[in-house]
């Protein structure tokens, strides 16, 4: 691949990597800090993407639109809609064992998918929504626009990182980790465990919605079949576990590391003869599944292990 081609390929890898980093940071809030297993990541991601698309696109006969609001509004709408959806799910399950929340999150992801596919008046169904705007769309085009978007995505990553770090070291975060490590003691100490869990889930879902919005504005087009939802959910889990759950730096490191490996193998397998390409994608999924088992058994603290922050002696 010639140099500029390679360069811009790297840009696209970094943009996607950044979006995954946002997803990982979100999941870290839910799992790393809250001990909640969200198996429906792709659903919250999708609902955020569609919310942002609907809010920012022009009038269309094919789907709900016409608000044509600026992109920041879209991203905020994405966060609100995803957060609200998360609130509904968590409110139902939060007082039960986390297995139920896991199953309910799978369920809600499926319901959201059904709604997206069937309610064509809203989403144009399987045909998808086109013409999702890019930030500064009038000022830059083509490859320069990608560079601009790279900056946009990683600015968001930075903001989310700072937010999550603040949450982590705050009294709120400390309580959350106390609940994660020993729920009974926390309850005995008078903490409203359910309320904390609810907040955690909602915040995480909102950030996942943001990631969805970022994705929509990058690809400028979205459809329910664009990405295999289960793979996205799964990859994010592997990324967080491998990077270091409970740890915001680990979330970003894990996202980039796994995404680089994934993209590298994609370059490699795209050179193979056609029958082998599909095969290799299944082999790759199999290996990711096995990687998760390995990390769970032997490598639970991840690449960047969690270190309790020093408690400031206020």
């Amino acid at each position: 691949m010639e140099m500029t081609g390679l360069f811009f390929y790297m840009i696209s890898v970094l943009i996607a990597g950044g979006i995954y980093a946002v997803l990982c940071l979100a999941l870290n809030v839910q799992w790393g800090m809250g001990g909640l297993f969200n198996a429906g990541i792709a659903g919250f991601f999708a609902v955020g993407a569609y919310a942002s698309a609907i809010v920012t696109t022009a009038v269309s006969s094919k789907h709900l639109g016409g608000f044509a609001l600026p992109i920041p509004f879209g991203l905020v709408a994405a966060m609100i809609v995803a957060g609200l959806t998360g609130w509904v799910v968590a409110k139902i399950c939060v007082r039960l064992k986390s297995d139920y929340l896991a199953m309910a999150s799978v369920g809600i992801a499926e319901i959201l998918r059904l709604v997206i596919v069937n309610e064509s008046w809203l989403t144009n169904g399987s045909l998808g929504i086109a013409g999702v705007p890019r930030p500064f769309g009038d000022l830059v085009q083509g490859r320069e626009a990608d560079l601009v978007y790279l900056a946009v995505v990683w600015t968001c990553v930075l903001c989310v990182y700072i937010l999550c770090q603040r949450l982590y070291v705050s009294p709120w975060g400390r309580t959350l980790r106390a609940i994660r490590d020993n729920e009974d003691s926390a309850r005995a100490a008078g903490k409203d465990v359910d309320w904390f869990r609810l907040q955690t889930f909602v915040i995480g879902c909102a950030i996942m919605g943001l990631a969805g919005g970022l994705s929509a504005h990058y690809f400028k087009f979205l459809s329910p079949s664009a990405t295999e939802p289960l793979l996205v959910t799964f990859l994010v889990w592997v990324m967080l576990m491998a990077g270091g759950s409970g740890n915001n730096k680990g979330a970003i490191v894990g996202a980039l590391a796994i995404w680089f490996i994934w993209s590298a193998t994609e370059i490699f397998t795209s050179r193979l003869p056609p029958e082998w390409i599909t095969r290799s994608s299944y082999i790759r999924m199999l290996l990711v599944g096995l990687l998760l088992q390995f990390v769970l058994q032997k490598f639970r603290s991840g690449l960047v292990p969690e270190k309790s922050p020093k408690i400031r002696s206020d």
Partner: peptide, 27 residues
């Protein structure tokens, strides 16, 4: 191997096993 840990880890593992089974089926 995960039995002594909180059961949520086994749930996550089973999520991975689901993917493993599905990939093997596709292969």
């Amino acid at each position: 191997p995960l039995r002594k840990l909180p059961t949520i880890y086994t749930v996550i593992a089973s999520f991975g096993v689901a993917l493993i089974f599905r990939s093997l089926a596709q292969l």
